[in-house]
Amino acid sequence: MSLVREHSEKIKPPRALWCGFELGRPFGAPNEPDFQRRVLAEALALLERPEGPILDDFPDGPPGGFTGADDEDNEGWTCPVNFGGGEEPDLEKDPAGAVRREMALLRSWYGLALENNGKTMVGVSGIGIEQCVDYLSAFALDPDAPPFRTDIPRYNFFKLCVDDIKAYYFEAATARPGPATDKEVADWYYGQSAMGEFLLKLNDICSRLDDPVLRKMSDRRLIPVHQHHLKS
C-alpha cells in the first residue's frame, strides 16, 4: 500500500497500490468494510500480475469524501461540549485543575465513545489518565520531576501521557455519529481547549531542555505540523 505516491516512485517497490486517502487511513475510512475489502483485494490482486515494478492508482476517494465540512449533506464536525462559562481554574497556576475540569465535561461523551467503539486507545501510558495529568503538571513545574514509570525512557513516558490525554479528548469529541477529520478536531483541541494551551506550554518547555530527545520532540512530535501556527 502507498499513501505518498512521491515516496513510492522513488523506492520502486515491486508492487504498490497508491491510495489518495488521509495519512493514518490506508484502507480508506472506518466502519466501511465493503470499501476496505475492495482496497485490500485490489492491492492483493497485484500479486498475480506477471511484470513489474507496478505502481497503480486506486481510482476512488474514501466514502464520505475527505472532509465532512465540504460535503453538502453534512454540516461538519462540531465539538459536543462548551468549555466556556462556570468557574475556570487558572491554567498558569493550576494546569491540572483546568484540564480535569475539561475532562469532567467530556466524561459522558467519552463513555459514549467507549460504548460505540467497543474499545479505547486511552491507556498506553500504563497509568490512569488522572495520573497522566498529574505527571504533566509536575513536569511543567520541574521537568526533572520523577516519572511514574522507570521501565521506559522519560521522553517515552511523557509522550504516552500526552497521547493518552489526546486520545481521551479525541474519542469523546468524536463520539457523536458523523464524520470527523483529524484537522477539524485538532483545530479545536490545540486551539480552543485548556489542554491544547497546556500542550503548547509543555512543548515550549521541551524546546529549551538539554534532553536531546525531548528537545527534538518539540519540533513536530507533540504539536502536529498543521497546528504549528499556534506555537509562540
Binding site: E22, R25, P30, N31, D182, R220, R221, P224
Partner: peptide, 19 residues
C-alpha cells in the same frame, strides 16, 4: 511517535489501518 497522521479512524475501527 508521530502526531502527523489521523488516529480518529483507528479509534473507531482498527481495520482502517490494520485490515
Amino acid at each position: 511517535v508521530s502526531s502527523n497522521f489521523d488516529r480518529i479512524g483507528f479509534m473507531k475501527d482498527a481495520d482502517v489501518a490494520f485490515p
